[in-house]
Every structure is written in structure tokens, then in C-alpha cells.
Amino acid sequence: MSSTLWWSEALIVIGRLGIPMALAHWVGEGLTTVFSFPVGLDVRRELTIGNCVSADGRSCPRPVPPRRKQSAEGGERSE
């Protein structure tokens, strides 16, 4: 019964334009939009006022490699 409801067709109509899709597809599209929108806003913020702004305009800082410490024997070891 629930699979019948899940795959039943839902239609959104605005004026003469209508978009028919299964309810499962509407839910999937809605969740994708809800979760992707904040990510897009964060990327926009980083490129305009965040850490990814530099003199050339699009240069993000590169990750710093892990530091190596000197061991008691005098050789290098990584953490």
C-alpha cells in the first residue's frame, strides 16, 4: 500500500504549465534542493568574503602537510 502512494503521480500546475512526477521524485528533488542550497551559499561566501579571497581573486589556501617531529634517536618521525 505505501509503495502505491510513494509512486503515485503528483502534478504541480502553475497557469498552463504542469509538471507531473511521482511523489518519490518530488521528495528527492526537494531534499536535494534543501541540502544543496546552504552549500552553495557557503561557497559563495567563501569566494567573496572568506578564506578563498586573495589578490588574484580565486586562490584558496592549500592544506598544510603534517609536521614531522624529531625522535629521541635524532631521526624524523611523522605523526
Rank of each mutant, 00 (worst) to 15 (best):
R68N: 05
V43D: 09
G50E: 01
S2V: 08
A22D: 00
P65V: 05
P38S: 11
S36A: 15
G30A: 03
W7L: 13
P66E: 05
W7D: 15
D56C: 01
L17Y: 12
R77F: 14
V64K: 14
E9P: 01
V27H: 07
L23S: 13
R45C: 10
G18A: 08
D56V: 01
G75P: 01
G74D: 09
G57P: 02
G40K: 05
A10T: 05
S3A: 00
V53N: 04
S71Y: 04
Q70G: 08
T33D: 04
F37I: 00
I12S: 12
V13M: 14
E46H: 12
S71H: 11
V27N: 04
E29W: 06
L17P: 03
G18R: 01
E9K: 10
V13E: 14
S36L: 10
A55N: 12
V34M: 06
G28A: 02
P38Q: 02
E73P: 02
S36K: 13
E46D: 09
V34Y: 08
S78P: 08
G75H: 09
F37T: 02
C52Y: 02
A22Y: 00
H25C: 06
V64L: 08
S71F: 06
G18P: 00
G74A: 03
P20A: 13
P63D: 04
S3I: 06
V27T: 06
I19A: 09
S59Q: 15
C52D: 02
D42G: 02
P66M: 01
I14M: 09
P20R: 04
C52I: 00
W7N: 15
G28H: 03
G75C: 03
G57V: 05
V43F: 14
G75R: 11
P65T: 06
I14Y: 13
S2H: 07
S59H: 14
W6C: 07
S71C: 10
L11C: 08
E79L: 10
L41K: 10
A72P: 15
W26C: 03
L17D: 07
L23Q: 13
V13W: 05
V27I: 11
E9W: 08
R45M: 04
